[in-house]
Design a protein around this nucleic acid. Structure first.
Lengths: 111, 111
DNA sequence: CTTGCATACATAAGAAACTTATGTGTATTT
DNA sequence: AAATACACATAAGTTTCTTATGTATGCAAG
């Protein structure tokens, strides 16, 4: 696991990116998927996940549908058209940011 | 400028990395250097900078010396041996983290 | 059959790390 | 003379997470 505060500021984009990649997903599924693709290095806690999803819903970035699996409820999240746009913008910004950070970590010798 | 909260969690490492690269530096100098190498995309605010530097000093990661330029004071920061180690470790962690994030942003098609 | 773990949601209190605002004073430029 | 840059510092407020807690189902193991 990474130092807890590295995730700060990137969590929302990570979640949105998962919805973009995989379409309809439910909360728990997102945590498992992110854990898988990060080789266990990013574990999204429930206390971070659900408030974030609720916030995204309140902002109109995602819509939800409840589904029952037996007696157990699942809440599926889907990007809205506005959500697709937001996801795209945030992805570009994050990519740009990590490019800048990379440069700071591995400075090129100046001329 | 990037969304403010992207910087969270990376600021300390950015500062330490500058001290590693450039040796002895003072606070204001760090903000200018980071602004320069990030093409103006990262502007460290004073409210973030000084508390971070003070914390690093309290932890024994850096030492300080005051110097007078005319009547104006400058406080120079230098990495301690322990600081070099911390910087190295944090750099590796951050590099690893951004590699993971890159993978999330640009997923490779699975087999 | 009951204990434990995984699945699946949710919220509240607390901590960390910033932003924004404010303050002090010197030096240089317009 | 006024504005901007240099150079430090701290306090209040906000965001965003962690940690803790709560509810409930499903399944496997002993």
């Amino acid at each position: 696991m990474y130092s807890k505060n590295l995730i700060k500021g990137t969590l929302q984009t990570i979640i949105l990116k998962q919805l973009e990649e995989n379409g309809r997903m439910y909360g728990y599924e997102i945590t498992q998927k992110v854990k898988e693709i990060s080789d266990g290095k990013i574990e999204i806690t429930e206390g971070a996940l659900y408030p974030t999803l609720h916030k995204l819903e309140a902002e109109g970035v995602v819509t939800t549908e409840k589904e029952f699996i037996g007696k157990r409820v699942r809440k599926y999240y889907t990007l809205t058209p506005s959500g697709n746009k937001v996801t795209s913008e945030k992805s570009i910004e994050l990519a740009d940011f990590i490019a800048t950070i990379s440069q700071i970590l591995q400075p090129k010798p100046s001329a």
